[in-house]
Design a protein around this nucleic acid. Sequence first.
DNA 1: GATAGACCTTCCCATTATAGGAAGGTCAAG
DNA 2: CTTGACCTTCCTATAATGGGAAGGTCTATC
Lengths: 156, 156
Amino acid sequence: MNIGQAASASGVNAKMIRHYESIGLIKTAARSDGGYRTYSTDDFHILAFIKRARKLGFSIDDIKRLLALWQGRKSSAEVKKVAMAHIEELEARIAELHGMRGTLRHLVDHCHGDARPTCPILDDLAGVAGDQPRRAEKATASSAARSKARALLHDS
Amino acid sequence: MNIGQAASASGVNAKMIRHYESIGLIKTAARSDGGYRTYSTDDFHILAFIKRARKLGFSIDDIKRLLALWQGRKSSAEVKKVAMAHIEELEARIAELHGMRGTLRHLVDHCHGDARPTCPILDDLAGVAGDQPRRAEKATASSAARSKARALLHDS
DNA sequence: GATAGACCTTCCCATTATAGGAAGGTCAAG
DNA sequence: CTTGACCTTCCTATAATGGGAAGGTCTATC
């Protein structure tokens, strides 16, 4: 199998296959006389594995670990650990996006969206206090530092 | 205000302020005799605006648009449009992550996570059919092409 | 055997937003 | 006048993907 066939068979495109090789995710491919990379059925399985893992949002680093576990035929405990850590990561990202969406949804719902220049969305972004239940800004240690800095500006 | 003060006051760090200047998101800062960038209260407001917009996940390009709208004091309709498009983007990303999380949750729930090497997670990634209600792979036009390619391998 | 066209090779560049570091200049306090 | 904090520019890196150029190989057809 040349790289093109391996690509369409696995769903990982040729550019990416070369990339994965270059970063050491997959082993250096065998070469034909003409210098073409050649792939075995085993190689194809690995590529398909990678493709599926990427679809689940695993990072290349995670996949490196999963591939080692897969090929090492070791315990499933380690795999489960990697997967659960990834679930937590996904959930954190979902929560973050969800928070953004909520704030924005609220702002959009209060924006009449007509020819008038007044706009709660811009007001919020500009820091004008409105009736928003949640501000775009979370209360963090750094925001406390910023409030202090803001005091120097006689602002807020 | 020097860049450091502007940074801690706005929450946008100094490195980023220079970067935003270099890509044209903010105008070139005025300079002191010694060549230091100096920032006015207006500049600070713009930086704070940018920071809040970034916290809501707007891209730099979106922010460029929002800043123009904010400073142009034009209609709110355009702002609402940008914001709604962003909400849709957020929702698409949430849905994608949610799908990943669901599939993974299911796999993790069926993995005993002990010393045995059998693992539904790896099996799924490897393409072994299990009792999974949803596979890691969506049925798409390209997956049809891949099935055809796979047929050439006498695989699947 | 020549040639066309599909496919392959390597190498470089771009993306997005953010950050680290090096080498060197400026400022304020002691 | 030195010290230390802060600033300057320039280069590099990240993660994953892709575009494109310049050139080599393979295969089918004439």
